[in-house]
Write a protein that binds this DNA or RNA. Structure first.
Lengths: 238, 238
DNA sequence: ACAAAAGTGTTCAGATTACACCCATGG
DNA sequence: CCATGGGTGTAATCTGAACACTTTTGT
């Protein structure tokens, strides 16, 4: 009675270069498309099919395991080979879509439930893994390119009507850092004054008393006032 | 190597009462929440588990079958017992989400990929099937209530930034009918002049030369100028 | 004193809202 | 001639976009 269909999860882990969230130097003087852009986690396959190709972290769902639990396990497995702390506990995890073309895996029928995970900064990854540019990826195994692009689309869309940005930021952050997240994901720059006015008016931010210091005027640190994803009535265009 | 997981599809078929799309009399004089509201297709289960309860049309995915194909097959099976023409060819079909809590089916592990289907008017359904109010459903089998509510949420959201409304309308329709779709799905009334100005400005409608006649001034008929779903830059708030 | 990023207001154009009457037809 | 829904414009308000300088700190 059980149809011969295997069920897998594949996880698109997205993050931004450390320069965005952590204020490291980013050479903005070169205006040739040197804007930070989203990165995704890929691993090199060492067995056929697609041996040698990059692919998303993934794995089969075990019999008694929930789908999101399977996604977290896949991340934990990737973490054991890399920067465990960051990878194993993504700040945001949500289901994307399910891909089930009968021929998507040449070995047989494997239906994949895909997930989007967000991290505040790229974890250190080791060995056969790497962070690659999500908006211009190399060839990927299976239909992973389709999955990746649906992840990016989801993130871009959700940025404007929700607080998903928290997934790409540390607990406390400056308004400039928040703006940098929007700019990196949307790929265009925003007006500082309009952006600040808008996000403060939306009221999902809370002023921590603290400041971040650097070799310039200190910046006020904010946090999201609700943990987790909040859907906004209004929209962040700005 | 294949995990013992069965894969099913469940389909939420949504439509609106004939009065909305077909201009039949709807007694608007009674203002007690008598607004038309979305309906969904349910069938009565005649075997355990949940024997006697209402459930969404669904079924297991066959080995070589695509997911959307499985959803269409499930609809075709429901159609063979009902109004075949309308049901078997929904005007819109899209994947919703995948539900995989290990205990969602008491018989064993069944992961369900859910779909949203839209019809312009309720098909005639026979025997153990019925159209029930989607916004206030009775008890449903399994986690079908969750699936139903994610379908409604999806539809409501998508109405404002896409042309999904085509799924609930015949090929040619009047602006009042289009407005009635928005009002029924969103559950509140809209200003006629503002609505018309907005949707015409968005430019996804095309004036067919034709008119619809009734015992009143004839109404211009429109169609969507692109077949299928179009995402809008701007948004229909109105 | 200089470099670097933080912070802050105003003006203008376009969009959204609220609102009420005449029109064309069928019966 | 009456009932029914179709169709239309304008003024007030709100929102989004564009735009440049001063402040605070570290070095």
């Amino acid at each position: 009675m059980t149809p011969p269909v295997s069920l897998a999860v594949d996880v698109v882990v997205l993050t931004l270069p450390a320069s965005v969230a952590e204020l490291d130097a980013w050479d903005a003087s070169e205006d040739r498309a040197a804007r930070p852009a989203p990165l995704f986690l890929a691993g090199r396959r060492d067995h056929p099919p697609f041996a040698g190709a990059w692919s998303l972290p993934g794995g089969l769902v075990a019999g008694a395991e929930g789908l999101e639990a399977a996604a977290r396990r896949v991340l934990a497995e990737a973490a054991s080979r890399s920067d465990a702390i960051r990878l194993a506990a993504p700040r945001h995890l949500e289901q994307l879509a399910t891909f089930g073309a009968p021929t998507r895996d040449p070995r047989g029928r494997v239906v994949s439930v895909s997930y989007l995970a967000l991290l505040p900064v790229p974890a250190q990854v080791a060995g056969n893994a790497a962070w690659l540019p999500a908006d211009d990826p190399p060839e990927l195994a299976f239909d992973h390119r389709t999955i990746l692009s649906s992840a990016l689309n989801r993130l871009r869309a959700k940025l404007s009507y929700s607080t998903v940005a928290y997934g790409l930021l540390p607990d406390h952050f400056t308004l400039s850092e928040l703006q940098a997240v929007y700019e990196a994901v949307r790929g265009r720059s925003l007006d500082k004054r309009n952006f600040r006015r808008k996000v403060l008016a939306l009221g999902f931010l809370e002023d921590t008393g603290d400041q971040r210091r650097g070799s310039h005027r200190p910046a006020q640190l904010y946090r999201f006032s609700q943990a987790g994803l909040v859907l906004l009535d209004d929209v962040i265009t700005t």
